[in-house]
């Protein structure tokens, strides 16, 4: 995904949170960061056709729809509309639930026999409540109001969502969308004091793109390394080719001997016991042939390729340095 598009998507999400009256309800609507990533990935339509962090900026304008809006922006807009539309609806079910509870209570009062006693019992706490409230200090009442507000917020949430919040997914989503406080970033610092660019390619506080580290060769070291590494690598390959060819010859010889023994067992021998001995010997020859063949393949495909990769990795380590623009 291009940096511009990624930043634009982040900006849209940030705006969504700014517009939301209830962030908690919005987070529940968004469900999880993974889900949002999948939605954006499906909607994203780049020339590369892949969703990956790309340091290169867009060389050509992307494919736009009829309105001139990219697909992923439309997807995020749809999510925002859904989220904003869900917020008023979230409050409505709570009121409906309260009404339903009242109806249930009324039904019970109508059907139960001890109607008057129950009515008195239910009425007593209501009468006593104002007195208790008056006796409580103002701080307690403030705490209670906070608790009731939280309870109301929880009532809005469906049961499945509550289970998710218990399992920690909600915390994860909140942590994902929250920005770190100023001066407290989890981004590790480089040796030169700068931020680790592999973690965030943009500045969280300012939102500006950061310069990615560029790899530059140390020319002298590279020349010296090439001068020594190429002859040494060729010598190592030749040395490793000797056992590879040796094992290849052994395997070919063993397999040919096995084939000859099998053909001879069915041509010249008449006694069953002798044939069994020859077939057993042929099987052992085939087994050894297979083992030698695989050993030769391992020398070529494993050891020689490993040496070449090792030399390349060493060159990468010794002869290149990372610089920032």
């Amino acid at each position: 995904m291009y940096e511009e598009d990624r930043l634009r998507a982040l900006e849209l999400y940030s705006r969504m949170f700014d517009e939301a009256t209830d962030e908690r309800a919005l987070l529940q609507t968004l469900m999880s960061p993974t889900r949002q990533a999948v939605v954006v990935a499906r909607a994203y339509n780049s020339n590369l056709g892949k969703l990956s962090i790309n340091t290169e900026h867009k060389a050509e304008p992307e494919d736009l729809d009829e309105n001139g809006v990219p697909d992923y922006v439309q997807a995020i807009e749809r999510i925002r509309d859904e989220a904003l539309a869900a917020q008023p609806r979230a409050a409505a079910p709570a009121a409906e639930d309260e009404k339903a509870e009242d109806e249930i209570v009324d039904e019970n009062q109508m059907t139960l026999f001890a109607g008057e006693e129950l009515a008195q019992e239910s009425a007593e706490p209501e009468e006593n409540e104002p007195e208790e409230i008056e006796q409580k200090p103002a701080e307690d009442r403030a705490e209670e109001s906070d608790e009731t507000a939280e309870e109301n917020a929880e009532e809005i949430v469906p049961e499945e969502e509550i289970v998710e919040s218990e399992s920690g997914e909600l915390k994860e989503s909140i942590a994902f969308f929250e920005l770190p406080p100023e001066g407290e970033t989890d981004i590790p610092a480089n040796e030169d004091g700068g931020d680790d660019l592999s973690v965030t390619p943009f500045n969280i506080e300012t939102g500006e793109l950061r310069s990615r580290p560029r790899r530059e060769p140390k020319v002298f070291a590279l020349i010296v390394y090439i001068l020594f590494a190429i002859p040494l690598t060729i010598a190592a390959i030749l040395i490793l080719l000797i056992p590879a060819l040796f094992f290849l010859a052994l395997s070919v010889a063993a397999i040919i001997c096995g084939v000859v023994v099998v053909s001879a067992a069915f041509n010249g021998f008449a006694v069953f016991a002798d044939i069994m001995v020859l077939l057993g010997g042929a099987l052992i020859l085939f087994a050894l042939g297979l083992l030698f063949l695989w050993t030769s393949i391992w020398f070529v495909g494993g050891a020689i390729v490993g040496v070449v990769h090792g030399v390349a990795a060493l060159c990468d380590k010794w002869c290149y340095k990372e610089v920032r623009d």
């Binding site: 006694v271 001995v277 010997g281 099987l283 085939f286 087994a287």
Partner: peptide, 27 residues
């Protein structure tokens, strides 16, 4: 694993052959 199985079968074949009367001189 394949090599060991094949060697085992070969040894079994040779053993069966000698148990049923094979002779190295005749072979």
């Amino acid at each position: 694993a394949i090599v060991l199985i094949m060697i085992l079968l070969g040894i079994v074949g040779v053993a069966v052959g000698f148990l049923t009367g094979a002779d190295t001189a005749r072979i």
